[in-house]
Design a protein around this nucleic acid. Structure first.
Length: 608
DNA sequence: ATAGGGTTAG
């Protein structure tokens, strides 16, 4: 065996000294006639070296060493399969397994089978898994709990339904915590959180002892169904079982509170943790991103101060927070951080950047990011199309849609909403209607409230208010406030007071607390000069107890975001804001914008 | 000497 030339050179320091020395010793000792004691075979030592190579991620080195081994026993083969899988090279693991079945001198054992099954799971290949299943039965290895649990995992992960996994699970005589946890995970990751919770309850009923793994996935199931009640219950059980210092379990609980919109509890949980890891920070930053983006940014800075290095998960949430706040310079700064860390290849992060630049008004940089991506998924295309649509580039969005379909990506409901909305804002009525028809006939997507809302908006915005109304009447279910809302907007914009009043009444039937609807309705009366009706509607609104939230605007001046409402007091800090607003108004006038004073006057009267 | 299940984004 030519192991000497394989001794690490560049990575010398990374290899445990003992292994290196023992390998040398074996090579020397083979020439001795009487070794002091029976040495382990060179195969054992080479296998140990292979294992340490994989632990360091030195896949190439492991492979070269394996190829140069003159005799490869089942342990060496298994170490290769398990090693590749541990580095997420599942296809290579599978290739090695096939090689072993073809040319290996040893038969595979239980260790080999469970490693091979883990590779199948990694490849999400049910057919490979079924093949190993057959081999396991042939070699009489079904009945080994490791093999059975690995089989269970393959069927639970790769099948559409949990039926096959259930069959395997039922036939395991002595189920352990791993068997139960694998079942709970199968349901939960498959989108059936209640199924996961059902298995967890059964586990407790059968007095199987749940461990930290069982608890973290059970809590994940609560998060998936958004059940604060079950989540709190299991949180209590976690404490009772003494897992409140287990970081993954606590991370799971933290995430559960965030997903149940219990940010107070999440915050409490976070501060109660004695030890935190990167996932802990990422979970809370992601938790705050939607509801309180500035808190996300604050946590991000705190996390760096405490010496944690952000990863692509962190950056994806932080970039989304910048997008929500529309803080371009901060977004650019964070973008710089991702480039410095070499995270440019991350798909989700690039998608977040497209959205951030678009929401910060910099569509050119969105396009730059999109253009540089080596891989794009549905989210990438959708984000870019929404960006084009909101910036008024309807034609570009439509072209992007066609390009996406041509590249082999199947559109979903969301991307149709993006293209319909883009058509709507660019006045591309016929194109939009064609996409609507194609969505139904070519892609079998049944339009829902939101899609109808988009099409009503498409027709209504272009002035085809009658057609929009006919479409609403053809909807096979009861249209909701988003559909009527789109229609109301069209009636208001194109002067259809009677249809507008009808739409407003429909909305108020569905959402009597939507104060904004009263405002629009009263404005329709005002425009008709029906001041009695106007006053009556306003009175109704006040009596309702809810108030329309003031329309808030914000503007970025010299890296600072200022937020204001109508009739805000002009303090000294707002002076520069007013200057910017004056500039914007001037610019709008120059491009021919005529303000719609008709409505704003009435809105002002009420201070809304 | 070789084999289990869990937590973070979109």
């Amino acid at each position: 065996m030519n192991a000497r030339k394989l001794l690490p050179t560049a990575h010398h320091h990374q290899i445990p000294l003992t292994i290196r020395n023992s390998l040398r010793w074996v090579q020397d000792s083979t020439t001795h006639l009487n070794p002091p004691f029976q040495p382990k075979g060179p195969s054992t030592l080479a296998t140990n070296l292979i294992i340490s190579y994989f632990k360091k991620g030195l896949i190439g080195e492991a492979r070269i060493l394996f190829d140069e081994m003159p005799e490869r026993d089942v342990v060496a083969w298994t170490a290769m399969i398990a090693g590749y899988t541990s580095c997420n090279h599942h296809n290579h693991a599978w290739t090695v397994f096939c090689e072993m079945m073809r040319e290996g001198t040893d038969r595979p054992n239980e260790f080999t089978m469970s490693s091979a099954l883990k590779a199948c799971k990694g490849m999400k290949s049910l057919s490979c898994g079924a093949l190993v299943h057959g081999l396991a039965i042939k070699h009489g290895m079904d009945g080994c709990l490791y093999v059975d649990n690995a089989l269970l995992d393959v069927y639970a992960t790769c099948c559409v339904s949990m039926d096959d996994a259930c069959t395997i699970f039922r036939d395991i005589h002595e189920k352990n915590a791993v068997s139960w946890t694998t079942m709970i995970t199968g349901y939960t990751h498959g989108g059936d959180g209640y199924g996961g919770l059902r298995v967890f309850r059964q586990m407790l009923l059968e007095e199987a002892e749940p461990n930290s793994f069982s608890f973290s996935i059970a809590v994940r199931a609560c998060a998936a169904v958004g059940s604060y009640t079950y989540g709190k219950l299991i949180h209590a059980a976690v404490i009772k079982h003494g897992f409140e210092s287990n970081i993954p379990v606590m991370n799971s609980i933290l995430d559960m509170y965030c997903r149940c919109s219990c940010l107070c509890e999440a915050n409490q949980c976070f501060h109660g943790m004695i030890e935190r890891d990167l996932i802990t920070w990422n979970t809370l930053i992601a938790g705050y991103e939607k509801s309180n983006s500035s808190e996300s940014l604050y946590l991000f800075s705190r996390m760096e101060l405490e010496g944690f290095s952000p990863n692509c998960f962190t950056f994806t949430s932080v970039i989304a927070a910048c997008a929500n706040l529309a803080v371009l310079s901060r977004g650019q700064q964070v973008h710089g951080g991702t480039v410095r860390r070499g995270l440019e290849g991350n798909l989700a992060l690039a998608n977040a950047l497209i959205d951030m630049y678009s929401k910060c008004g910099n569509i050119a940089d969105s396009h730059k990011i999109f253009g540089k991506m080596s891989r794009r998924n549905l989210v990438s295309w959708t984000s870019m199309m929404i960006g084009y649509g909101t910036h008024g580039y309807g034609k570009e969005a439509v072209e992007l849609f066609d390009e996406m379909v041509a590249s082999g990506i199947r559109p979903d409901r969301i991307v149709f909403m993006a293209v319909l909305s883009a058509c709507s804002h660019a006045g591309l009525v016929d194109e939009g209607l064609n996409y609507f028809k194609a969505m139904i006939s070519d892609y079998n997507i049944t339009p829902d409230q939101e899609i109808y809302g988009c099409v009503v908006d498409l027709l209504g915005r272009a002035g085809s208010v009658k057609e929009a109304y006919e479409l609403i009447e053809s909807i096979p279910f009861k249209p909701d406030e988003s559909v009527w809302g789109a229609f109301l907007g069209a009636c208001k914009a194109h002067g259809f007071p009677n249809l507008g009043k009808l739409a407003a009444r429909r909305i108020l039937d569905l959402r009597p607390n939507m104060a904004g609807t009263y405002v629009v309705l009263s404005n329709i009366y005002a425009a008709e000069g029906k001041w009695g009706e106007f006053a009556r509607t306003r009175k109704l609104m006040r009596g309702m107890g809810s108030k329309k939230e003031a329309g808030r605007s914000w503007v970025e001046v010299r890296n600072q975001v200022y937020s204001f409402v109508v009739r805000d007091k002009v303090g000294s800090h707002m002076v520069s804001v007013c200057e910017v607003l004056e500039m914007l108004i001037q610019h709008m006038k120059e491009v021919g914008y005529v303000p719609d004073l008709d409505c704003s006057i009435h809105d002002l009267e009420d201070g809304t």
